[in-house]
C-alpha cells in the first residue's frame, strides 16, 4: 500500500534549499486500488469517470466499494460532462511537498460538477478571477508516470 505515504519526506529546510528543477523530487502519484482503477484508466482516455450505484443510481465520488444509500457493491461508471462551478478554493503559496516547489503559487479549486459531486483540482487561469459559483470546464493534464490528472479552466462564456 501507500508507498509514497510511507516514505520519509524531506525536511522543511531541505525543501527550502532546493532551487533547481533538476533537484526536485517527483510529484506523488496515486496508489491505485481495485475500486479506483477504472477512474484512473478513464483519465488516461481523457474521461472523468464517476461511480453510479447499480442498485439505486446514486452517484458518488471518490471511488469506493459500497453505496452509502442502498449498500449495494454493484457499480457502473458514467462520464462527467466536464461542466462545473466553483464551490471554493485556496491559492497554495508554501510548497508542502518538494515536487510542487516550482509550481507555487497555484490555485486549487473545489468544483461542484453538474453530476452532483466535487473535484479538487488546480485552476489553469488567473486566480484574480476566482469567485464562488463561477463556471469552469474540466481539462486533462499529464501527471507523470503514466497518470493523467484533472484540472479546470474558466468557461468561455
Amino acid at each position: 500500500m501507500a508507498t509514497w505515504a510511507m516514505a520519509v519526506w524531506p525536511s522543511w529546510p531541505a525543501i527550502e534549499a532546493m532551487n533547481t528543477h533538476a533537484e526536485l523530487p517527483a510529484k506523488p502519484v496515486p496508489d491505485v486500488t481495485p475500486e479506483s482503477a477504472p477512474y484512473w484508466e478513464g483519465l488516461r482516455q481523457h474521461k472523468l469517470l464517476l461511480q453510479a450505484c447499480a442498485g439505486c443510481g446514486q452517484i458518488r465520488h471518490y471511488p469506493r466499494a459500497v453505496c452509502a444509500t442502498c449498500y449495494s457493491i454493484a457499480v457502473t461508471w458514467i462520464e462527467a460532462n466536464g461542466a462545473g462551478t466553483i464551490q471554493s478554493w485556496t491559492v497554495a503559496h508554501h510548497p508542502f511537498h518538494p515536487g510542487f516547489k516550482i509550481e507555487v503559487p497555484y490555485a486549487l479549486l473545489l468544483v461542484d460538477l453538474a453530476e452532483g459531486v466535487r473535484v479538487n483540482a488546480p485552476l489553469r487561469g488567473d486566480p484574480a478571477g476566482l469567485q464562488l459559483g463561477r463556471a469552469v470546464r474540466l481539462i486533462f493534464e499529464n501527471g507523470g508516470q503514466g497518470f493523467v490528472l484533472p484540472a479546470f479552466e474558466y468557461s468561455a462564456e
Binding site: A2, W4, A5, K27, P28, V29, P30, D31, V32, T33, S36, Y62, Q87, S88, W89, T90, A92, H94, F96, H97, F100, E103, Y106, L108, L110, N120, A121, P122, G143, F147, L149, P150, A151
Partner: peptide, 18 residues
C-alpha cells in the same frame, strides 16, 4: 490521499483553507 495529493493538496493548511 490517492486523489488529492497528486493535484497538490497536502497539508492541513491547504485542506482547511477552502
Amino acid at each position: 490521499a490517492e486523489f488529492e495529493l497528486p493535484v497538490g493538496a497536502f497539508a492541513p493548511a491547504q485542506l482547511y483553507a477552502p
